[in-house]
Design a protein around this nucleic acid. Structure first.
Lengths: 347, 347
DNA sequence: CGGTGCTAGTAAATCGCTTTACTGATGGGC
DNA sequence: GCCCATCAGTAAAGCGATTTACTAGCACCG
């Protein structure tokens, strides 16, 4: 494996010259230049990135920690970040925690360990107490998608609140009055914000009288089925369900199918994420779309452009807008609610 | 950021001692040992991995190139490899090509570029002509899941042929005689092998008289719908469909739903991959399960244990068994086929 | 003719660790 | 008392870049 010195020798110049030429800090006359290029080609020279990093004290590599990579949202997020990183000449090292205890901490440490330029951190569970101090220590960490309360780091979320709002508004406008909501509880930033926006939308709606039944769990298919079942058992009068993730939508659909409830004839459903090809579903599912591409691009941008000495920059929160993608899983219900719905009790 | 020298100074020994102690090539008496450990803790020392790699000429990092990361099978495969790599103390760097021209080549070059210990290469398209020579040049490449014909590299596949066989056998035993198959064409190793096994199973079946209608495309939801539609339009008599990937199953289901065909009452379906939670589907889908975990583990093992000087080892092909996971998407049809099926023409 | 400014480079220190080949001291065996 | 092991560690040469601070040579200007 050829090195700089050999290239320099063959080109009849010094290693410094080759290095500086390659890094653009030296412009050379044509003949020299050509000699170098030839030598490089002849020896099939590839700079050793380790020597490079060692010398420059910089990596050109960013790391991303995700809890999961099979879940469509995370897979898409990783793809988006990879893309953005690639565009900026950074390599992406991906680490998957599978929520195994200690893995998150371990990877966070690796910012110092691996002397990586920075880290994009995505979590999906609330037990993050030991993370805070490690994030603070690591610096050069961007929190993406989910919060770690108290940690000092720039954050990037989608507009969960307004996503919830859009969903609520949409259901209200279609005449739904008794609605089930399934998602995470308030311990998760996303679940709290989505639900808050959702509730506000209903409050803002001219005619009050809403009953919202919330069931909380994790963003999994299993919980989607389970929570949907609970919802239907306890509140048979609901006419619509807001499911806060693609997985929850799938789980909900399964449960509805199991009960022979048709969407949207028997019950309406509106989702969140919109990563799975909901268009292709038997009933195309209306959902709030997360701006995954934009999230990935922005996360990389923040990571690379933040001035890590500036405390203000390190606690900045960026919010990206979401959109409602209308399909056909929400039906209009008559403006005057049925009696059967009426006498149902509020939680 | 502390370095070896500082640790050594603080512990009152030489850098060499610390280094050798840390690498286990020196056993020290308790007091010295303790002094070093204390110094490390006090300075929060983390060895610089670049200096390490530079010095040792080794990376402890393996790279994986995948065409896609959103597709469930690839996401699962990446997760499995990550896991296996982690277990062996290797970092995993993941690169996603999105089938953009040049990206695969570029990443292959990076084995030399990044001086990575090795690379696991997964592709999903047949235009691989320029890849062959690059793989040969890179050495230390394992071909996973899909073949690049002619390249010199160890290969690891699931038993596509026997997967096809199992599917064919299962459908035959359930009395299906007119069957649609959708998958990739023979230009892809997986598509060819799965179809071959499938056909052989039908041939092996006691009572001949099968009609198999094959439609080929790529492993996507879109193609699943499209090919299923073509199949149903051209061969309305088919009683079962073998869909060669999760995506194709989804696409097929969508198309069936669109036509109000129920699974398995109106038509049976058997899938391949079994990564998506098919259990949770409205009709749980019977499918051939790919041993994703095992594929990941084995790929890493091959990468790390192959003697790259040995030409025999470099052209070894490893095949992992698949299993049929029985659910409820395949119905039995009466042993004597209907007249309507009878007069349908073979392709 | 001296000074200034280019051009076209170079020498050498440095990044942080690994590793080979040593050394000095101590203790045991005969 | 001498020799040989063993123990406990060290000095120094890499690994392959980058980068700072220089210099030699030349042209041009006034």
């Amino acid at each position: 494996m050829a090195n700089l010195k050999q290239v320099a020798e063959r080109a009849g110049v010094s290693p410094a010259t080759v290095s500086r030429y390659l890094n653009g800090s030296l412009s050379l006359p044509e003949p020299t230049r050509e000699a170098i290029e030839n030598a490089i080609r002849a020896l099939n020279y590839h700079p050793n990135p380790f020597a490079r990093s060692l010398s420059r004290g910089r990596t050109d590599q960013i790391q991303m920690v995700v809890p999961e990579i099979k879940a469509p949202f995370f897979a898409a997020l990783v793809a988006a970040v990879e893309n953005a990183a690639f565009e900026r000449g950074q390599e992406l090292a991906i680490s998957v925690t599978l929520n195994r205890p200690g893995r998150e901490q371990r990877y966070l440490d690796s910012v110092s360990d691996r002397h990586v330029d920075g880290l994009i951190f995505v979590t999906n569970h609330p037990e993050v107490a030991p993370l805070k101090s490690r994030i603070d220590a690591a610096r050069r960490v961007v929190l993406l998608d989910e919060d770690v309360p108290g940690a000092t780091a720039p954050r990037l979320f989608c507009d969960n609140d307004s996503g919830g709002y859009l969903a609520g508004q949409y259901l209200a406008r279609h005449g739904h009055r008794a609605i089930g909501v399934i998602g995470t509880g308030d311990e998760m930033h996303s679940g709290a914000a989505r639900f808050q926006g959702f509730s506000r939308a209903l409050d803002d709606s001219a005619d009050g009288g809403y009953r919202v039944h919330r069931k909380t769990g994790s963003y999994t298919i299993e919980d989607g089925s389970r929570l949907c079942a609970e919802l239907l058992d306890e509140h048979p009068g609901i006419t619509a369900i807001f499911a806060m993730s693609d997985e929850l939508v799938i789980g909900t659909l399964d449960e509805l199918a199991r009960r022979d409830l048709r969407v949207p004839d028997d019950i309406s459903i509106i989702g969140f994420d919109d990563i799975l090809p909901l268009d292709y579903f038997a009933t195309p599912i209306t959902a709030i779309r997360q701006p995954v591409e934009a999230l990935g691009a922005k996360a990389v941008e923040i990571l690379l452009n933040t001035d890590w000495e500036d405390p203000a920059a390190c606690s900045r929160v960026e919010i990206l807008p979401v959109t409602l993608v209308e399909r056909s899983s929400v039906a209009s219900v008559p403006p005057a609610p049925q009696a059967t719905v009426q006498h149902e009790s509020n939680r």
